[in-house]
Amino acid sequence: MMSIRRTATVLRAFWQLNWLEELQYRGNFIASLLGTVFWLLMAILTAALYFQHTSTLGGWAFWDVVVLLGIFNALAGVVETMLRPGIGHLPADVRSGALDLVLVRPVDAQFYVSFRRLDVWRLADVVLGLALAWYAFVQTGRAISAWELIIFVVTFAVAIAVIYAIWVALMSLAFWFVAVENLAALFDALFEAARYPVSAYPGALRFLFVYLIPIAWTTTIPASALTGRLRPALAFWALAVGIAALGASRLLWRVALERYTSAGG
């Protein structure tokens, strides 16, 4: 196990390194920013279209849904910044043998793979998403207490942890299905369901996206916290789920790595 201080040092080194690498691609920053703004606009227009024909969606008003949309975008930004370039690269590293180079280093492999590569420009997506969520929140006219804000931050962090765990689970499949190149597309497909509140889905779909693949919770819970729908008890449950998710991801990683190293790679 790496010490806290060591972890912090390595993390800072990764951060600086990624900035140095990314600064070469300033043009791509503008391009990806424009892309994000465009898709955000499309998403808002989609919601607007739905609300042309209804006044609530599963009990959520228009601006409530936009709050959730902002959170979705922010979480998608986290995925693009940290997860896709990081753990999302695992299948390619397994295929090319680059993972072996990681395993011989005196750093925790899961930590290294997860944080070595960051797409720092995509942090703009996170900022944009949170800004949209805040704007929509203001439009709802609700007041929010400091306590509720803290719960929101906690549930948002939990959402990141759950998404991370899902990514680790999916990418670990690369150890078994080496030839599959687009495991990340599975996440993209499932994450689409998190665009809308869980209650907006009819029974069968709700079952799929809530109980079978708990992806819809990642946006609904934090958005519920902001829009005053979250029962405090659920917040504690969410925290427990977040910690469990991190633990599960760790376990899954260890199992997968065990198989990789014993199978001869």
């Binding site: 969606l57 030839a179 689409e192 665009r195 889905y201």
Partner: peptide, 22 residues
């Protein structure tokens, strides 16, 4: 990989359907 792309291709219409169904 193609099976995964297929899944990805049908999720969007399914989600749209879910919303309109509601």
């Amino acid at each position: 990989s193609i099976a995964i792309w297929l899944i990805w291709g049908i999720t969007e219409p399914i989600i749209s359907l879910g919303i309109w169904w509601t």
